[in-house]
Amino acid sequence: MKCTVNGQPQEIDDVWEGESLLYALRERMGLPGSKNACEQGECGSCTVYLDGTPVCACLVAAGQAADRDVVTVEGLAEDDELHPVQQAFLDAGAVQCGFCTPGLLVATHDLLEREPQPSDPEIREALAGNLCRCTGYEKILDAVRQAAATSAQSKAGPS
């Protein structure tokens, strides 16, 4: 099966196309960033972009991703620099065990692409499919607000 993952062409053999994209990413392509917690679309920790749309990788058949473009949490940072969304999660203390974090980062990244200055209800709605057992979500909301503020600043140019 061939597809593009984080800009790199990938070709994997021996994949059963009915297994999940999540399994293919983690076990066959060596990209364990996307987490496997529920395998039933409930937790969002496996969220990846498929052709630019955030989806649960556990609910995409590997064969459905063939010839398509996948971006995982590993593809958010540029070179050695964390993406502002990642930095904001660290700074805000939104990461405890970190299991939910990769999915939240992709979901937040997508939200800010669509809506650079989201309201709190918009943030809650956008992250409704991502469960976190540790943080109680307040720190996560802080992180999203912070990431929105940082990107607004950097868009306004250096002062």
Binding site: E17, G18, S20, E39, Q40, G41, L59, V60, A61, Q64
Partner: peptide, 24 residues
């Protein structure tokens, strides 16, 4: 048949169904 897979993949992940053919 499999479209969005949001029902089908749950069944497959949990071995609740093993169809001979999946039709994407």
């Amino acid at each position: 048949p499999i479209s969005g897979g949001t029902d089908v993949m749950v069944e497959i992940n949990f071995d609740a169904t093993r169809p001979e053919y999946l039709l994407d």
